[in-house]
Amino acid sequence: MSDLAVIQAKGLDLTFQTNDGAVQALKGVDLDINRGDFVSFIGPSGCGKTTFLRCVAALETPTGGSLTVNGMSPEEARQARAYGYVFQAAGLYPWRTIAGNIRLPLEIMGFSKAEQNERVEKVLELVDLAGFGGKFPWQLSGGMQQRASIARALSFDADILLMDEPFGALDEIVRDHLNEELLKLWERTGKTIGFVTHSIPEAVYLSTRIVVMSPRPGRITDVIESPLPKERPLDIRDTPEFLEVAHRVREGLRAGHAYD
C-alpha cells in the first residue's frame, strides 16, 4: 500500500496566526493518495481543502505532523517540479499567446526550444485546443482559457496534478463538458489528481475517492471510495449508484455541520 502512496499525510496540523487570534486551518489530517488516484476534496469554505492542497504544493508550511510527496518533503518536491497546479482562475499572461503561456513553465525549467515546441503541440492536442496556439488568452472564452491553463500544468509532464476549484468560475454547461474532458485526460495520462471542489455532483462524477472535510478546525470527516466504474458517461449521474454516493457525501457534509 505505502509504496503506492505518492502523497502521504500523517497528523497534519496547520495553525494560522491572524489578528483575531489563532485559526486552526487543519487538524490531525491523515490521508494517503495512491498513484493514479483521482481524489476530490469537498467541504464548506474554511474546511481546509484548499489549504491541504497548498501544503502539498509547498505554498503553505504545516505547523505539525508529517507530509511527503513522492517520498520527499513538499519543498523538495516543488524544487523537483513534481506536480502541476491549476488555480481557480486560468491566470494566463495576456501578453503571451496560448502557446507562449504553455511554453512558460518549460522555459523556466530549461527545456530545449525543440522540445518546448513539441510538448506545446502535444498538450494543446490533449486539451482539444490544437490550432489555437497563436491566439491571445483574451481572444478565447473562459472555458478555453481554463483548458489552456490545464494544458500548461500538463506540459512538463509531472505525474501529480493539483487542481484548486479549476472550474469554479465557469457556468454549468461548460463545466459539465470540461468534467467529461478531464476524465478522459486522466484516463489517457494516468496522472494522480488532487481536486478541490464545492460541487457534490462534480466530486462524485470525477473521483475514485472523495474526501469530505468540515471546518473549525479543518479536518477530514469521511473518505468515500467510489463504487462507480472507470468508464463514466455524463448520464451516469442519473443512476442509483451515483445518487447513493452523492447522498453519502451530503450526509457527511451535514454531519460536519451539525453543531453549527
Binding site: Y85, G91, E107
Partner: peptide, 27 residues
C-alpha cells in the same frame, strides 16, 4: 501581480529573475 500569479511561479520553482523577467516586468 496577484498572489495567485506569484504562487504559480512558485509551483514551477522559478528563480527570482525568471519571475522578474517573465511575469513581473511585463505585468
Amino acid at each position: 501581480t496577484t498572489q495567485m500569479q506569484r504562487d504559480q511561479m512558485k509551483t514551477w520553482a522559478a528563480s527570482y529573475w525568471q519571475g522578474f523577467w517573465k511575469l513581473r516586468l511585463p505585468a
